[in-house]
Amino acid sequence: MVDIRKAEGVVIRRRLFSDTSLIATFFTDRFGKVRVIAKGALRRGSPLRGKLDLFMRNSILFYHGRGDLHIVKECDTIGSYGGIRDDLDRIVAASYIAEIVDGLTLPEAPDGSLYALLVQSLAALNASDRPVQVAACFAPRLLSVLGIFPRYSSCAECGERLEGERFYDGASFRCKGCLSRPAAAVSGGTAALIDRILSPGGPGPDALSPPAEQLSELVALSSAIFEAESGRRMKTRLMAWCPAAGRAVDEGRNPVQNACKPG
């Protein structure tokens, strides 16, 4: 008997498989990250056409294919987030979120909290006039739900409580006295910002007004954690794309990220 599965999911990556077919990666509520092939999805008249674009939230019916590649049978759009595709900064911000989820999750490892946060972040981006800030603030939450945001209130080596400036060495936060390899300074202001972002019931991203330097440091720190955990380079250069927040500070030259390159 064919194992048919039903789930709700967001398209976090897609690529062409042939002229008319594509492979979409969904992050779903029930099965975590799922790759599906949509045969003929790009054909004129295909009921799947237009429903498997990036960031679309769909209800999908799929059955088990070869290995971890499943075959999508039906797809109904629940949320299209049209506001994201109308704005370049929102597209880049949503790409940043999608890359974090795609890069740090294993196939078919369900995580309902992460899915809820992903949907919440896309909904926030869809209407935000500060998409870079929204993405920058959601990134630590995503990393925290994934269980990989390092403890930043005390030194990983000596256990001393960290006040003001602290150092991230690509694995953990340390005090200045315990540094044994190149590490990047993270300001006390950025640490306080992370406190507010991660506190339960804390303010939404749009309610925060961090200075550009803190925002840049936060993005660079999240990217550095992503790169350290996934072992691959973060491709979405959030700050570099967005003129209002980013062109002042090119994250490619940001000391936090540069000091913590993987490998």
């Binding site: 004129r44 008249g45 009921p47 237009g50 674009d53 759009t77 299209s80 595709r85």
Partner: peptide, 16 residues
Amino acid sequence: IPVGSSLNFADEITLA
């Protein structure tokens, strides 16, 4: 909407 196709099969972004 592509010529010759039905509204039933159009996705919501295309329709919008």
